[in-house]
Design a protein around this nucleic acid. Structure first.
Lengths: 194, 194
DNA sequence: ATCATTTCTTGAACCAGTTCAATTTTTATG
DNA sequence: CATAAAAATTGAACTGGTTCAAGAAATGAT
């Protein structure tokens, strides 16, 4: 049940058998069907979850109603609205499953208890944040410094399997372009003919 | 000498007198003039620094030579290229002072020693990353979901003192627009007249 | 299988922001 | 304070991407 998350923790810290038991005792396994809303912006986010199986979307909706996808969590990614989870304030992000998902969920209280009982986990969550930060910075930089076509090619290279799991309109919302323009990029019709 | 950084640590963790001494013993105080290059992309980043006084820029240069400013660290911010600092790999970011700066610097070895001797600091650096992450996410979202004019107004609201410290062309590079267009936004000449 | 719904494609008109080049304003330096 | 250098402004032409509207293709429910 916890094999996948155990493999994940091993990439960050090493645990004794007892420490691992404490960890497991604080986790909850959860299966949800596709198109399930896990978090709605405005609600408080009361979980941090590890994706064992499946695919989801983490997205933002601006005042004009435009949706922007931040990332598509798949196997071995974590999902949460961390500022909200940490502070209890309303979330600014939405999270929804794209496929049926198998998740391992940790609550705010459980996470606090984990840090108190096995301080080593501070390190794991620090390293997780460090990875997330690097990822987000790369994403930011490519968004401002590359053309839509270059971003699309980079997306295909980095996540070759995602086009099979994520509808095209959501990929457009991830790239920060309209669904129509992505369609034109794919067919090559966005270039000036000469 | 370490008052500012001590005030900062207090917002994250509480330390005994001995712990604070260990911390101080691992820090180096450094003053640098303005326009000093602290890090050049391609070099390994061997420091993480706390800004006691002054203002700098952290920026990226893309293949076409276009510069994009990520943020303008001022008093009480941290600066580093963390992926490079952590792994020793070449940095992708550039860091340069805009004003003369007073910095408190910690080296890779010192940071490792700090974590080993006072594990509590894992928490502080985790919380720092959490803040940085929230900031970066907000920045990303506003970049893709708002117009250049809205982004500029938000920048003025969030950092009202920065226009006095940072040249306008760098603010344009922060907003992801050309210096010319920022000038037009400021004078209102970017709108269709009617 | 069939029909309804959703997703994807295509084209034409449009607009936010860029580029280039010239001018003005501000800042730094002897 | 003079003058050179750097930063900011302005206008005109242009381009990458949007919007809207209509049609084609794919998907799902019965």
């Amino acid at each position: 049940m916890f094999e996948a998350i155990d493999r994940y923790t091993e990439t960050c810290i090493s645990l004794t058998q007892e420490e691992r038991s404490v960890f497991h005792s604080l986790l909850v396994h959860k299966s949800v069907p596709k198109k399930t809303v896990l978090l709605r912006a405005g609600d408080a986010c009361d979980f941090e979850a590890f994706v064992v199986k499946g695919c989801a979307r983490v997205f933002f909706i601006n005042e004009a109603g435009k949706e922007v996808d931040l990332y598509f969590p798949v196997e071995n990614w974590w999902i949460s609205d961390l500022p909200s989870f940490t502070s209890g304030k309303p979330a600014s992000l939405n999270i929804e499953t794209i496929e049926a998902c198998e998740l391992i969920v940790i609550s705010r209280e459980a996470k606090a208890k984990l840090f108190a009982e096995v301080p080593k986990f501070e390190r794991m969550f620090r390293l997780m944040l460090q990875r997330a930060n690097e990822e987000l910075m790369n994403r930011f930089i490519s968004t401002v410094a590359m053309s839509a076509e270059e971003r699309y090619k980079l997306f295909l290279k980095k996540y070759p399997e995602l086009p099979n799991r994520v509808p095209q309109q959501l990929i457009a919302a991830y790239l920060g372009i309209s669904a129509e323009f992505l369609s034109k990029i794919r067919s090559g019709k966005h270039k000036k003919e000469d």
